[in-house]
Write a protein that binds this DNA or RNA. Sequence first.
DNA 1: AGCGCACGGCGAACCGGTACGCTCGCCGGA
DNA 2: TCCGGCGAGCGTACCGGTTCGCCGTGCGCT
Lengths: 338, 338
Amino acid sequence: MATIGDVAREAGVARSTVSAVLNGRKLVLPDTRARVEAAIEKLDYSVNSGARALATARTMTLGLVVRFHEAEFSPALATYIVAITDAAREHGYGMLLLTETDGAAAIRKAIAGRQVDGLVLLSVVEGDPRIEPLAAADFPAVLVGMPQDTRGLDAVDLDFAAAARMLVDHLVEAGHQEATFLTWPEEVFVSGRTYARRFRDASLDQAGARGMRLELIHCTSGPDQVRDALRAALTRPGAPEALLVHNDAAIAMLPMVMHDLNLAVPDDRSVVSLYSAELGRLYALPYTSVESQPETVSEIAVDLLVRRLADTGAPRGTHRLVAPILTPRASVRHAAQA
Amino acid sequence: MATIGDVAREAGVARSTVSAVLNGRKLVLPDTRARVEAAIEKLDYSVNSGARALATARTMTLGLVVRFHEAEFSPALATYIVAITDAAREHGYGMLLLTETDGAAAIRKAIAGRQVDGLVLLSVVEGDPRIEPLAAADFPAVLVGMPQDTRGLDAVDLDFAAAARMLVDHLVEAGHQEATFLTWPEEVFVSGRTYARRFRDASLDQAGARGMRLELIHCTSGPDQVRDALRAALTRPGAPEALLVHNDAAIAMLPMVMHDLNLAVPDDRSVVSLYSAELGRLYALPYTSVESQPETVSEIAVDLLVRRLADTGAPRGTHRLVAPILTPRASVRHAAQA
DNA sequence: AGCGCACGGCGAACCGGTACGCTCGCCGGA
DNA sequence: TCCGGCGAGCGTACCGGTTCGCCGTGCGCT
């Protein structure tokens, strides 16, 4: 493999001149530049990123810390991983993957070994143990997910509260005065998934504000349980005609269950939901809904991080909530006012 | 951040002695070693991996090249990514993630920039364009997936052919003389998914060998199409009682469809299948089946690669087929012999 | 007592870049 | 004509490790 020295010799210039050509920092005569470039071409040279990192003290690599929970719906995870990696590359950064099976040790090692310039934390939960050490070390990092206390770190997420208000409003404006609200299993809240709490709280608040009765159901996880919960929600006597769903497993199953029960949307039931974009694509879900925006969120996350790396002294603790987008799919019937 | 020089000064030894302690290559007096270790502890020193990489010409980092196809059912992708990264860490390697949106450019850049010591290619298809440049450059790499020509690269995958034979045998031995074989959409074959072809061919061969009639159905993708295909396969007049399914979307939907049609397993239909482990976990599928073994495959892949890195001159083109494991779940009824 | 060897540690060279100060030559102005 | 200034490129120090040859000491053996 050719080195910068080989190129310099080939072009008949000093190594520093080659470096100048490579980085375009200094003025170089077109003639010289051409000679250097020819030498680079001829020797098929490319810079040794490790050596450059050593010299510049910047690795041009970010770390992506993923938590992996088998229980969760993981197509979303792959989407985020890829989208964030792509976004990083756009900014000229590579992406080192850090999994978390051995606690935060991998993070510490990556930082201590100067393998990364900054970190992206995926699937951040309330009180996430990864946050504290980063905040303490003042290491550049951005959270994907929005816990109540980000300890001065930057964070990005979909604005689940706004999404909840949007969906509740949508039902209210269609004349629904009551609805069943099917949300995540209890354990999702207990384990601190911030999106679940934010959506739930905002839904209940907004329903209260708009005078809508919202009946909360946490279905347990597992396909059969979800199915039963859906059936119950749809068929028990006196059940409202409107359904607000925030639960990927449930919404994926809903078309089948309704078909089963011979119920039609929107004629028999109005349905609005918030789910991950992957799920919507995969199942071609027919509901008026807000979908997660993994690409947007990923881009913003990397943007924030890169900006912080470029501009030390940027304000700490920037929070970015991505505005939800409501996609109408004619799953809401205008209800007669009582 | 402390450097090896700081440690040396603190311990009153030469830098090379600290290095010897760190790497344990040379004999160091226990006394000296203790002083060095104390200094390391005191200064909270850890080696700069970039500098080490420069000096040793080994980055201790592998590259993971993922292809991302939205269309595919991809829970498996995240599982592989995480499992491979974990496996690499077990061997002391970090993992650089390379996505493929800009073609093989990312790979080339990673190699040219000496960012990785070896590559793992995920979701390898028949005639995968990533293979050729790697084979040509003789760069250490391992394929996850088993195309017909691996160009001398190492490769790992589940033994889909053996799995197919196992499942066909299972049906035959239960007395079934005919079965419907529901497989992937045509486009999956066209796009060169090796698992699809290997499973299909072996199924047909084995059915022929065992005197079983196997009726092949490629259902098209999309939830409604899959659903219809399933219904048709189950209800059309003269349909066999046994079902062999190799199609994640279909098998996920099957319980619902059968429930819909008021058909029971195994009383009304015998079902065997091969699907991704994630799907089985997510949907708690009740079928006798072979499941993909992402963890095993990942470990073997990393093992192969690490071995090749350690032992230049290891034989080229090692192929490892992971033995399928049949998990009986009482979804096959013993049929009366005709 | 003298010789040789093994062991422990030292020091310098090197990995492949970047950064910065300096020199040299050319040009314009006084 | 001489001087100043500036632009282009050179040389070198440095980033933080590893590697390897060398040296001094202490011990065993003859």
